[in-house]
Amino acid sequence: MFQESCFVLRAFLRHAAGSLYHIVIVAMSAGIALLLPAGAGRFLSFWSHVEHDTFSLIAVEMIAAVLLMGCFNSVHRSLRDRALAEAALGAGLVSFFPRRGPQARRRIHALKDEQGTGRSVMVIGSSGAETLMDQVGDLSSVLDKCLEAKILLVNPFNRDARARMQALAHPACTYPAFREEVRQSIALLKRLKAIGKVVKLKLYADAPLVKLVILGDYLWLQHYHADLDSQTMPEYVLQRNRKEHGLYTFYAHYFMQRWESPELPEYDLETDELVFRSRTGQEIRREPVEIGPAPVAAPSAETVRVDAQEAFRLLHAPGPYLPVRGYDLE
């Protein structure tokens, strides 16, 4: 209800801004027409004084030269910007968000909510944590209003994906945390399917390249960088054009190629199984998966030894506790 009220208010303000713009233009033209005779008389009087004063004449010439240079530079910049704008429109680029500040986040959320209502949603992501399940995320309300959702996420059950996550050796990108994020995304898709939404999920094993969201005639694109957080990367908005030669068509075709690939198993949201199909769509086999939290690896013997020695040192440290004597760590 609040979002609908905000949408109506924004539409009213846009309409009022357009009407106010036309009113201001008419008022300015009328004011110029009324003040033009008096202004012309003042200019002629000023010029009759300037033409007999050498210093004033030189000053006026310098000011006129600076104004002409500024005008020519402005025209040149305007023509260059127009050419760039035409190239961007030809490619389908309609919006660009270089940073994810609070105002940009609100703008992105409003645009995606407006573009995705009653549309088919197609997504390529990593774990879906920041795209699907976050209640203040980009698609938190879009998925509730969409007609159909096709989701591609990284397969957390694949050995290559697990090895890649463990090789990162980053405290914020651990395999258990990643698997938990995927588990929560799957739980959200199960909830959507339970309320009657047409939801399909497929899993891929290679490294994520782009974060891609298709909302009807609009496509949101973000690059996954190996060393940077994806939230710090710029986000582009592409729109489908009539000539079908823009970047929207390219990335939409890329999504469909990935989605229809027989190498990607489909996740059965009802039975928690990976369904493998042939190129003709016939089911080949099913593999049950355990979607629960990832098991925590047992500590090594060296880790246990170090922890035990540290505990023994703390017990013998001076303090309110009685020291423990005669404890053999070996």
Rank of each mutant, 00 (worst) to 15 (best):
S74D: 04
I108L: 15
R99M: 05
S56G: 05
L20M: 05
A87M: 13
S74T: 05
D113P: 07
E51H: 09
F97R: 02
A110I: 02
G70V: 02
G128I: 01
L36A: 12
H52W: 03
D134G: 03
G116L: 00
E61Q: 14
G92D: 00
S126L: 10
R42P: 03
A87I: 10
H15Q: 07
R14C: 02
H76V: 14
Y21A: 11
F72S: 13
P98S: 03
L111T: 05
V60A: 08
R119G: 08
M122C: 12
A38Q: 12
E86L: 11
E61T: 15
Q135G: 13
L89R: 12
Q115L: 13
I25T: 07
L57D: 04
N73H: 11
G31S: 13
S48N: 10
A33F: 12
L35W: 11
Q115F: 08
S56M: 09
S45F: 05
G31D: 11
I58Y: 10
A11W: 00
G90R: 07
R105N: 12
G116F: 00
A65Y: 02
V26A: 14
A85Q: 14
T54L: 11
L57T: 14
A33I: 08
Q135K: 12
G70H: 03
A65N: 01
A91R: 08
R99I: 07
A110E: 09
W47L: 13
L84Q: 07
S48W: 07
L20C: 04
F46Q: 11
I32N: 04
M133P: 02
L35R: 15
R99K: 04
D53L: 00
F55S: 14
E61V: 15
A83E: 12
M69G: 08
G70M: 04
V24N: 01
G116D: 01
G101K: 06
M69C: 10
M69Q: 06
R105H: 09
L111G: 01
V24P: 01
V66K: 11
G128P: 00
S78Y: 14
A16T: 06
F43M: 13
H109P: 03
A64P: 01
F43Y: 12
R106D: 06
P37W: 02
G125D: 05
A129N: 02
S120N: 08
N73V: 09
R80A: 14
F97H: 07
L13A: 04
A30T: 10
A11L: 02
V50M: 04
R106G: 05
I63K: 15
A88N: 12
T54G: 04
V66S: 08
A104V: 06
S127F: 01
M28W: 15
A33H: 06
A104N: 08
I25R: 10
W47S: 08
L89E: 15
L68E: 05
